[in-house]
Design a protein around this nucleic acid. Sequence first.
DNA 1: GCGACGCGTTCCGGACACCGGGACGACATG
DNA 2: CATGTCGTCCCGGTGTCCGGAACGCGTCGC
Lengths: 251, 251
Amino acid sequence: MAENDATSLVRRAFVVLACFSTSDRELSLAQLVARTGLPKATLHRLAGQLIAAGALERSGRNYRLGVKMFELSGAVWAQRVLRDIAMPFLQELYEQTRETVQLAMFDGDAVLYIDRIRGHNTAVLPTFPGGRMPAYCTALGKAMLAFSPAETVNGIIARGLIPLSPRTVTTPNLLIAQLRSIQRTRIAYDAEESVSGVCCVAAPVLGANGRAIAAVSVSATTPRARRLRAESVRSCATRIGQALRDHSPGA
Amino acid sequence: MAENDATSLVRRAFVVLACFSTSDRELSLAQLVARTGLPKATLHRLAGQLIAAGALERSGRNYRLGVKMFELSGAVWAQRVLRDIAMPFLQELYEQTRETVQLAMFDGDAVLYIDRIRGHNTAVLPTFPGGRMPAYCTALGKAMLAFSPAETVNGIIARGLIPLSPRTVTTPNLLIAQLRSIQRTRIAYDAEESVSGVCCVAAPVLGANGRAIAAVSVSATTPRARRLRAESVRSCATRIGQALRDHSPGA
DNA sequence: GCGACGCGTTCCGGACACCGGGACGACATG
DNA sequence: CATGTCGTCCCGGTGTCCGGAACGCGTCGC
């Protein structure tokens, strides 16, 4: 485990917290040891300190993230402002489509999900606010990649297009062609490329400089996806972009 | 500053992170020093470590919370499950009312806001997901207090009912009478008690044991508040409670 | 029942990551 | 120019942190 190279306590603390970022609700001390490579006694003490700080909680003999981590997230300004401004538009898009609506930003090589509106009987997605997915195989990611610097795209291609589903596009030329199309149409599709059985239409939220700040998407199970209206998504994204510019002129 | 008693580095780290939990988007090193009482060199180093961990970011000479803090929040299971399950119902409530809908949990003496749906031209509230407010002067808080152990209520009263607005209820007997009424009706009101110019109707989400797990509210500016339908809010809360029980039988 | 194993908790001598006062350069102001 | 405030860096000192080891508990297989 590369993370046991960490010598700084703060770094170690966040390595431990990050262990919970996957699908695990709770982890035992032994599991944390296995994941971080930190010595058991060290980890036990660190976990105790994280509990005292509210970052972790006990659940029986297991640990889970504490409410403090939720609370601190509200103060992450970039996400909060985007979410606040986008919410009315996302809400309208949901009403127009009756399918799951998602808002995401770009972070590293990944899509970082910011918010989501879903109704009864909408597609069950593995994504959630705070979650991440590789950019190259999600409509949201591609929508943003198409309006990102070429170095970003090239970097992602160089690091490899690992398949996430049987339909993931893994050839650089095909991805680049898709991004070219998105640059023209401002609409990105994900035809079961990230999640089998789910299709997605996304559009980039652009800043004043033409770069992607975020993206909006509508997702549906494949049989229902033919009803997804690209124009609604694109319009929503455009209006969010405008609302952001109105909120922070010069941004 | 009481927090400078902290000797554990983890504790100090979270004291620093908590400085951003208020309304400040960014803080300078000097402001962090003033707020935490930690020595400047110590703080400078700690902030650097938090940056390395992704918990803080630089913005010019200032600091702000980093994207990592948003990302970790997605893994706080209790909030995530509640939010996921409640979302379709919140969405319906928004459509019925066209006013700001909020979902909250109870944490310590405070309401912790979990999610919010708002539209164009809805009331501007100072609350946001991750934010907190005293329980005794918010409809959400009172809805939950009414279905909490008596010790909880007595503790809050003993610690003092500090006014948040000119309309905040600060006499224990009146609060208790309100809670009695809420126990009968399952509806709580906030008539400009927490925020001047804003009224709120809330209902508790009850667990199988009759205790409040969370609460739902609709807020509107005072002139529009007479249209708020208590029955819609109560029905929404009841259905969320049922959905939670279906999701985790025995909880 | 007994031994082995895995788990979490606790102890304690050692050490090194962290501490913080102080120096320094940059910038703003009178 | 002098003063004050800011953020950054240095470095000797030290106390918080480290982690191996021991321990108690529970489970499982023989």
